[in-house]
């Protein structure tokens, strides 16, 4: 297994909660590799460990045992501030509930990750405008989340995630709050970003037709990878 060359590598990753009898293994020795440029859907029932896996992939969480490597870095052993830096530099996040700052304009929301990079105001503005243009929100820059539809809010969130030109986009149920038409639009957008920017995408979803947009689908069950199928293999 070429784990070293992979963007994301799980080497017998365990994640356990609780103590003694009450101990629960959210992940029970998972091995996994995701290459640069892949668009991966992660599925599984609740409690299957998919969310835990996503948190580890996004460097928000660390394994209890085993090794998680991100870009060849042993990210599971980094302290929280180093992981924050890693997230800021290489990872973008899109959440089910959009998670935009309320009463803050779209442009300011998109600028947020750049502030933590210490980018000058002018550069931040330019990059934010560019990212908003890429997600098709020209003319909505100064709207607050309350003035935007769900689909538009998720586009702002995607612009915020890609404004730093990350290597990896972590999407947690990105279409969970959207209707079918909006879902289709957002998935088209993600597919385009994957194809045009070479952005690696790891997306949790429980909808099969959303997962269909991805090239590869990994199913979790009881803390294990139950299946890992690529469209190319199926085809």
């Amino acid at each position: 297994m070429a784990a070293n060359a992979a963007l994301i590598g799980f080497d017998t990753v365990w994640k356990s909660y609780g103590q003694g009898e009450a101990k629960v293994h959210a992940l029970a020795g998972v091995d996994l590799a995701i290459q640069r440029g892949e668009f991966v859907a992660i599925m599984g029932p609740s409690g299957s460990g998919k969310s835990t896996a996503m948190n580890i992939i996004g460097c928000l969480d660390t394994p209890t045992a085993g090794t998680y490597s991100f870009m060849g870095i042993d990210a599971g052993r980094l302290d929280r501030n180093r992981r924050a830096l890693l997230r800021n530099l290489y990872i973008g996040f899109v959440f089910q509930g959009y998670n935009l700052l309320p009463r803050t304009t779209a442009a300011e929301n998109v600028e947020l990750p750049l502030i933590y990079r210490g980018a000058p105001a002018r550069e931040r503005r330019d990059l934010a405008m560019q990212a908003l243009a890429e997600v098709g929100l020209v003319g909505r820059e100064h709207h607050t989340p309350a003035e935007l539809s769900g689909g538009q809010q998720q586009r702002v969130a995607i612009a915020r995630a890609i404004v730093t030109r990350p290597t990896l986009l972590v999407a947690d149920e990105p279409t969970g709050n959207l209707d079918t038409a909006r879902t289709h639009e957002i998935m088209e957008l993600l597919t385009r970003l994957n194809r045009d920017l070479g952005l690696t995408i790891a997306m949790v979803t429980h909808e099969a037709d959303v997962a269909d947009y991805a090239e590869r689908t990994i199913r979790f069950l009881d803390g294990h990878v139950a299946s890992d199928s690529s469209k190319l293999e199926v085809a």
Binding site: L85, L100, L112, Y116
Partner: peptide, 16 residues
């Protein structure tokens, strides 16, 4: 709390 969570997720350092 949620705002802090967002900020931390997108790379805010503790000190920020």
């Amino acid at each position: 709390t949620r705002e802090i969570g967002i900020r931390l997720a997108i790379g805010a350092h503790e000190k920020h």
